[in-house]
Design a protein around this nucleic acid. Structure first.
Lengths: 249, 249
DNA sequence: CGCTATGATTTGTCTAGTTGTATAGAACAT
DNA sequence: ATGTTCTATACAACTAGACAAATCATAGCG
């Protein structure tokens, strides 16, 4: 008796209003009326446009958010979710290139710069003696003004004494290393694990506490095989897809 | 309380209970107890007043709705239906005038404003080359805050470059055309067909999917005979009666 | 210039009321 | 027996309003 072919055999209304709104908005996004990262009209405006109560719009937006199509920020608005950024990991990992390749605009924010003694993991990764000094660069990477990852880069202070000042000027690790005499470097190894976002990470990455995090650790070496950087990166799992291109050893 | 005391406790009555409720309510409306557009008491209240179950009231209201006497809006209430608005179609079709003439308050809602390449129908109607740019105005017309019709107006972008900004300020097509130098325009031809409401149309017009729709397409020309607007309109069939005043070709 | 304070805007959450639909059963007529 | 009418209950969908919380824009001040 229920002639609705497309809809599941759910009893109730023919097509729920909120579902129609979901379809309409999804269509708008697909047709490019709203671009990736754009702010949608406010819930109140959408409610007026569709001639519907705000809660009904919220129901529609909630469905779209669950699908990962949009994400809301209280006090700010609802934004079209950027398509997950593909982040290639291979022998040559360069943040700037990785982001620009996808047509996005890269940016970095310095959270902390300091010099201190290396802990055991850092020392082991950089092949240092325990207690040797290291420069540490904590920062935040963004693509199209959206936080992509938190990172911590550790450099041997003895080998690269000017690293901190170089980093402060040009936030790029690649450029700073070049200024310190390391023209090229390659990734020796990368390890990837999954974690959940802590409160501070969530704050910086603009995600909710407990969201999935991709944590990578890696060591970069100069052409002579000396380790020049030990890096840890925490990617916002919802916004990044790590890709391993078939690389040759 | 008219004749609510028809001894509902005595089953097996000749006239069904719901039918007497229909009569009673219809009488109330006819006597002006409820005016056009008024909200009836909630089903629960009516059920209490007639001393019957809510479903019995619903049965009565359903019959009245089928007759077009009332229409229900979920979450809002049951309202006395407004008489269908007469919408004259002739050489000079002006939405504002058509509605105000009937003593109703006209309004418009902008659904979308965009500029894109004309499709083949639009190009043919406006006498453009295929692929020429057009301004498109999607909107909703209301009378007394009730949706009357969906419309899509297409304007040649070359001839009317400022049309979109004009439309955004004053939602009236007539006013916007005037601002663009078209002081007057007349309807060249109007075609009318009947359709069934799609889900999106139903959403905007606040009707149920599959309700009848009056679809008109027409071309407006300026005094020199140049087409300035290609319009498509989808009227809510239950709420509008198109009238053709005897005009000469 | 930088900082704060303030108000407006926007999303998040809650409570309450209304119609739409589904299911089940009782009373009654045929 | 069988079908119709009405009752009873429950839940889903939508509206309405209010308030809290986060954010943004701006004015004012030192």
């Amino acid at each position: 008796m229920t002639q609705s072919g497309a809809t599941p055999a759910k009893p109730g209304t023919r097509t729920a209003v909120w579902k129609s709104i979901t379809i309409s908005l999804t269509d708008d996004i697909a047709q490019g009326r709203y671009n990736s990262g754009d702010k949608l009209p406010s819930e109140a405006q959408l409610a007026a446009r569709f001639g519907v109560n705000r809660h009904t719009v919220r129901r529609a937006l909630a469905a779209m958010a669950e699908q990962g199509l949009v994400h809301a920020r209280r006090g700010s608005g609802v934004f079209v979710a950027a398509a997950p950024t593909d982040y290639p990991i291979g022998k040559r990992v360069r943040f700037h290139q990785n982001i620009t390749r996808g047509g996005q605009i890269p940016a970095k924010r310095i959270l902390a710069l300091e010099t201190r003694a290396a802990d055991s993991t850092e020392a082991a990764a950089l092949q240092l003696e325990a207690g040797e000094m290291v420069h540490v660069y904590d920062g935040l990477s963004l693509a199209d003004d959206q936080p992509i990852a938190l990172f911590q880069s550790v450099f041997p202070a003895l080998v690269l004494p000017e690293m901190l000042t170089s980093l402060e000027e040009m936030q790029s690790v690649t450029a700073a290393l070049k200024a310190c005499g390391i023209a090229d470097y390659t990734r020796q190894e990368t390890r990837i694990t999954a974690k959940l976002a802590t409160a501070t990470q969530a704050l910086h990455l603009r995600i909710t506490e407990g969201s999935p995090i991709l944590r990578t650790t890696g060591v970069n070496i100069d052409p002579d095989g000396r380790p020049v950087e030990f890096g840890r990166t925490w990617f916002a799992g919802d916004r990044v897809t790590l890709t391993i291109d078939g690389q040759e050893p």
